[in-house]
Design a protein around this nucleic acid. Structure first.
Lengths: 336, 336
DNA sequence: CTGTTAGCGCGTTCAA
DNA sequence: TTGAACGCGCTAACAG
């Protein structure tokens, strides 16, 4: 077994209480005994029993994150970045990260969240990929459980969140395409139950409107954020009587699929047809042609999310309850 | 606050002990009281306090995994699959998953592992990407801490592990290329401190030898598993007096980078030069051209890893202490 | 069948 | 400046 306070106490001849206080730097312990106890603790290889601390402090010092895993083999590299950010942000405050996975919208989802909440395994939860109407957030709110979300919702729930201005991002991308001379621009939307799908679609529509371009319903198709679906939807767009000369995809993965579909028809992406993605995942720059995309700093977002959450857990005030970051259009080759 | 055993006990008029036993289905509680207690617990919305259980049972029901995060923006989608597999495998046994990140070979690494081990936050750890000489495994072994590794080591440490036969995988890939008529075949190795780099390189060399091909040292270059490095190394190979007509990369990411480098020189991958990867990450099939690669079932591997680990934690015997899986060559377009 | 007693390892009153 | 006593929520040994 491992060293406990009791062991140290026995060794130094002080009570467990004093040892505890010495180790936690209470100022009602004499400097000498403090030194002594700390030295002995060090020598004996003492490490606090985190679980016992949690029980006593009523604090786990752990944040939870449920990866919205799509089917295996369709996972989005994006989540690894987000995860790393959340984990590192948490670690910087001595918090750990508990991870589960669950298919979005799965009936099991509620259970997975409940498991974390009811079992009090974590002090707060990071919710990613908010939905227009998000039961997860509603649930956490109803339980009074600390949360922070990556994304907004359409409902009037009030909760702390961080989001990227996808509306603006897509708007700028479309304006850029129009500037390049494109008149028929397609949009492969993310699944429309996702809040950011709405935002991005809105950006697309507004840009067309502002430039007096017709908003042809046939040019908007709905994907599910996977390459496979991006590929299919692109085929659909290219099969149109009057196919688009440029396409904005709701995320990079779909853009990759879309590029593949175009190339299989002998089109040269960046010359015959322009493709723009969203996210700027690491691979985007190494695709052929390199993908023009709307960049969001995912790792940093993850970091900020966990730091916001920990502030909330600590009962501190948040400077802003809702932070909106501006994305950045990264122009590479796929847009011509 | 939330409902505890005490609350239920008070309500039903039994002792805390009896309530605990009833809820845990001990058979020394009368059927009626059991029913009663369970019903009331349900009504009151009781959920066991996992932390308190952990303290008492000396078991956290949690496994740990430290993601060998390379620099941000260079993360390997592969780890998300692995993570999902580990998480799901654990969940199937009612275990949770605690995740940290750490740069491989970072001085901080030891601290991160110690944190999990000494704090007794987890019952066991999954170690990924084993090194030829792996201090992490040596450490865990020295602490007598349950572990299972994805990969072998060069040392004679005895520990449970699961690995893919990379030697065989690359051997087959090279034989396949030779069958296609290639005579000058390059190899972009993973960082050589990684054990699987040795295996894969060995497969490459053996295949050349078995086919009486010269083992030209210039054809073997060392990468670091990132697209960027794959790109650089491919340039290096193409700059050779006698460049290779085919290249096997140590993983898919480097293969992507290599393809990009070839394409930038106007070479058509799959016709002018063949490229083969290793892993079969989701994107491989959607690259242009689609990547021929050596597939390892990462998600399933993750699942098996956590299941092995949990067996060990439970003190059960492992059927095999060392499992070697056979990878599968998936032929697509990049190999011509 | 059920309750009492004892911890798991720690932090925190309160008295001395 | 220090220690005894208590409790966090739960399980387990032992009586009865």
């Amino acid at each position: 077994m491992s060293v406990t306070l009791k062991d140290i106490a026995r060794k130094v001849g002080y009570s467990v209480t004093t040892v505890s206080r010495a180790l936690n730097d209470y100022d009602d312990v004499s400097e000498e005994t403090k030194q002594l106890i700390k030295r002995v603790a060090q020598e004996m290889g003492y490490h606090p029993h985190v679980i016992a601390q949690s029980l006593q402090r009523r604090r786990t010092n752990t944040v939870g994150f449920i990866v919205p895993a799509t089917d295996r083999y369709l996972s989005d590299p994006y989540f690894l970045e987000l995860l790393a950010g959340i984990g590192d942000g948490a670690a910087s405050h001595d918090f750990d990260l508990l991870v589960s996975t669950c298919k979005p919208m799965d009936p099991q989802e509620r259970v997975v969240y409940e498991r974390m909440v009811r079992g009090r395994r974590v002090d707060g939860i990071v919710v990613a990929r908010t939905r227009c109407d998000d039961e997860r957030i509603a649930y956490l709110l109803s339980e009074g459980f600390p949360l922070v979300a990556f994304g907004r919702t359409a409902s009037d729930l009030d909760f702390p969140c961080l989001d990227v201005d996808g509306e603006r991002g897509v708007y700028e991308a479309v304006e850029y395409l129009i500037g390049l001379g494109h008149r028929r621009i397609g949009f492969i939307a993310p699944s429309m139950y996702l809040m950011f799908a709405e935002h991005r679609l809105a950006g697309y529509k507004r840009a067309l409107r502002d430039n007096d371009l017709e908003d042809d319903a046939a040019l908007v198709v709905e994907g599910n954020l996977t390459q496979a679906r991006g590929y299919q939807r692109m085929e659909q767009l290219l099969d149109l009587e009057e196919p688009p000369t440029a396409v904005v995809a709701g995320n990079d993965l779909m853009a990759f699929g879309a590029m593949e579909a175009a190339q299989e028809r002998g089109l040269v992406v960046g010359r015959d047809v322009a493709v723009i993605g969203f996210d700027d995942v690491p691979l985007a720059a190494y695709f052929h042609p390199a993908l023009t995309t709307i960049r969001q700093p995912i790792y940093d977002i993850g970091k900020m999310l966990s730091q916001m959450l920990i502030k909330i857990i600590n009962g501190e005030e948040l400077a802003e309850r809702q932070i909106i970051l501006q994305p950045e259009l990264v122009i590479r080759e796929s847009s011509g």
